[in-house]
Nucleic acid binder design. Structure first.
Length: 128
DNA sequence: GCCAACGTTGGC
DNA sequence: GCCAACGTTGGC
């Protein structure tokens, strides 16, 4: 089982929306590295749900409920894919970016090193 | 609102 | 193939 982190702007699609909806098609990813990460996701993988821009931090835990398939929002462009996610639980206390940055063990996290990547692996060994 | 980082586009 | 211009992301 693998761990991942996905970003979303709460004003666009936050944890609250996701939780109410009960399932999300993770579409609109238009970056090759992020796309490759989507393709590597497997059923049951755990996904940290991160809010970017405002109220920044990890706010919940999700899981992969469908593996990658072509992004239906760009049927003419086969390069892009989506996966589907379901909420598992909200975190009692969101983990802010400030706290993540303050943790030496997380220094290699892609979140820190490539601030613009929107879908990334989170390995227990911190080998990102 | 500003700006740094960085990915993409397009001219040559 | 290079690189300048440009657009977007995302932290502050």
């Amino acid at each position: 089982m693998n761990y991942w982190l996905v970003k979303s702007e709460p004003d666009v699609y936050g944890w609250h929306h996701f939780n109410e909806q009960g399932r999300a098609v993770w579409d609109g990813v238009r970056n090759y590295q992020a796309r490759n990460n989507l393709k590597a996701m497997r059923l049951g993988d755990q996904v940290l749900f991160y809010h970017s821009v405002t109220n920044i931090g990890v706010v919940g835990l999700a899981k992969v409920v469908r593996e990658s398939y072509p992004d239906p929002t760009s049927p003419e462009d086969l390069r892009w894919v989506v996966i589907e996610l379901e909420p598992v639980m909200a975190l009692d206390k969101p983990v802010s970016l400030a706290r993540i940055k303050a943790e030496p063990l997380l220094a290699n996290l892609s979140l820190i090193r490539q601030s613009r990547l929107s879908v990334m692996p989170v390995r227990p060994t911190n080998l990102n």
